[in-house]
C-alpha cells in the first residue's frame, strides 16, 4: 500500500494524477455521450457507478487507509438508504414519523434528508465500530458481518416500512433548482458528491488523522508507543467511513426510488469490498475505477451469463494473487 498518500502532494503532474483525471472525465463522459446517443439507460448505469464509488470511497477510508476489513458496510449503506426512504415516504404522505415526545415529520428535500442519513449511518458506525474494534483480524471481519446481518434481519422483520418487500418512494426527493427526475441532473448530484468525497478523502489521507490512521494499519503497537490510541483513531475513521457510505445509501434510494433490505445484505457488503479491492485498496481513486469496472461487468457479463459473479470472483482472485494494487496499481504503478 501507499506511503505517498501522506506525503506533500507532488508538484509534478504524477502518473496517478493523470489516471485520476482520466477516470473523473471518463465517468462524466458516459452519461453525456449516452444522452447524445439517446440511451438514457446508460445514464442510470453511470449514476449507479458514481453512487457505488461514493460508498467505496467511504469504505476505503476504513479498509484502505486503516486496514479495517469491514464486512458490514452494507449496514451503513442501508441506514442511509432507509433514512432517505422513510423521510421521503413520510414527507409525501404527510404522516409524522413520531408524535412523541415531539412531533417529527418527513421531508422530500434532499438537503434535509442527507444530514439525517449521514448522522444515522455515523451513529451506526460509532456503535458497531466501538464494539467491533475490540477485535482484530478475522474476528473483526466476522463481527462486522454479524452486525450487518443483524441490521438486515431487523429491516426484514420490521413491517412498518415494507419488511422484506421494501419501501417504494415513487419519486425522487427534491433539490433546489434541479429536476431530480431528469437522469442527467440526478447524475450531476451523485457525481458532485463523489468528487466532494474524493476531495475530502484526499484531505483526510494527508491530515494528522490520516497519518495516524495509516500508522494504525501498519503497526498498532508502535502507534500506541508514541502516545496515540490506535482504537480511537480507527474508530474515528470508521465513523467517517460509515457516514460517507450512508450518504451513498441515501442517493441510492433516490436513484431507485425504492429501498429494500437487499441494500443491507451481506452481498452488498461483499460487493463494496470487491469494488474497492478491484480498484486498488488504499488508492484515492481505487473505488472509482472499481465501481466503473464492476458496473460495466455486471451489465455486459450479466447480459450474457447469469454466472457473471463467477467471472468477477475470478478477476478478484487474480487481483489478490497477482496485481495487489488493483486497477490503480496496473494503471498508475505500484505506489502511485
Amino acid at each position: 500500500m501507499t506511503a505517498a498518500a501522506v506525503q506533500a502532494p507532488a508538484r509534478r503532474w504524477s502518473r496517478e494524477a493523470r489516471v485520476n483525471t482520466a477516470l473523473s472525465l471518463g465517468l462524466l463522459a458516459v452519461p453525456l455521450l449516452a444522452m447524445a446517443a439517446g440511451e438514457p439507460f446508460w445514464v442510470t448505469l453511470a449514476t449507479r457507478a458514481a453512487i457505488l464509488a461514493l460508498a467505496g470511497v467511504g469504505l476505503n477510508l476504513a479498509l484502505g487507509y486503516g486496514g479495517l476489513v469491514s464486512f458490514g458496510h452494507a449496514a451503513f449503506f442501508g441506514l442511509g438508504g432507509y433514512a432517505a426512504g422513510v423521510l421521503a415516504s413520510h414527507g409525501m404522505s404527510g404522516r409524522p414519523i413520531v408524535t412523541w415526545p415531539l412531533e417529527i415529520g418527513g421531508t422530500t428535500q434532499m438537503l434535509a434528508i442527507w444530514p439525517v442519513a449521514v448522522a444515522a449511518a455515523a451513529l451506526g458506525a460509532l456503535v458497531i465500530g466501538a464494539l467491533s474494534l475490540r477485535t482484530t483480524g478475522v474476528f473483526f471481519i466476522m463481527i462486522t458481518l454479524a452486525f450487518g446481518q443483524m441490521a438486515f434481519y431487523f429491516m426484514v422483520s420490521w413491517p412498518a416500512y415494507g419488511g422484506e418487500d421494501g419501501l417504494p418512494t415513487y419519486v425522487r426527493s427534491r433539490f433546489p433548482g434541479v429536476n431530480t427526475m431528469a437522469p442527467l441532473q440526478f447524475f450531476a448530484i451523485a457525481y458532485g458528491w463523489l468528487m466532494l468525497a474524493l476531495w475530502l478523502s484526499w484531505r483526510i489521507a494527508g491530515s494528522r488523522l490520516g497519518l495516524a490512521l495509516q500508522a494504525a494499519r501498519q503497526n498498532r503497537q508502535r502507534l500506541a508507543a508514541v502516545g496515540i490510541r490506535p482504537k480511537s483513531v480507527l474508530l474515528g475513521a470508521f465513523v467517517l467511513s460509515g457516514a460517507l457510505t450512508g450518504l451513498a445509501g441515501a442517493l441510492y434510494t433516490d436513484l431507485n426510488r425504492f429501498v429494500s433490505p437487499a441494500m443491507l445484505s451481506w452481498q452488498t457488503s461483499g460487493e463494496l469490498l470487491v469494488l474497492v479491492i478491484l480498484g486498488g485498496v488504499g488508492r484515492l481513486f481505487g473505488p472509482v475505477a472499481g465501481a466503473m469496472l464492476f458496473i460495466a461487468l455486471e451489465h455486459l457479463l450479466g447480459g450474457i451469463s447469469d454466472y457473471w459473479q463467477f467471472f468477477l470472483g475470478a478477476m478478484l482472485l487474480m487481483v489478490v494473487l497477482f496485481a495487489r494494487g488493483g486497477i490503480m496499481g496496473a494503471l498508475a504503478g505500484r505506489d502511485g
Binding site: 494527508g206 491530515s207 494528522r208 488523522l209 495516524a212 496515540i228
Partner: peptide
Amino acid sequence: ALAVLGSRGGVFGLWRNVM
C-alpha cells in the same frame, strides 16, 4: 512526525497536510 503528533497536539486536525 507521527511521534511528534502523539506528544503534541494529537490527531484531531483534519485539514492541514501533515508533511
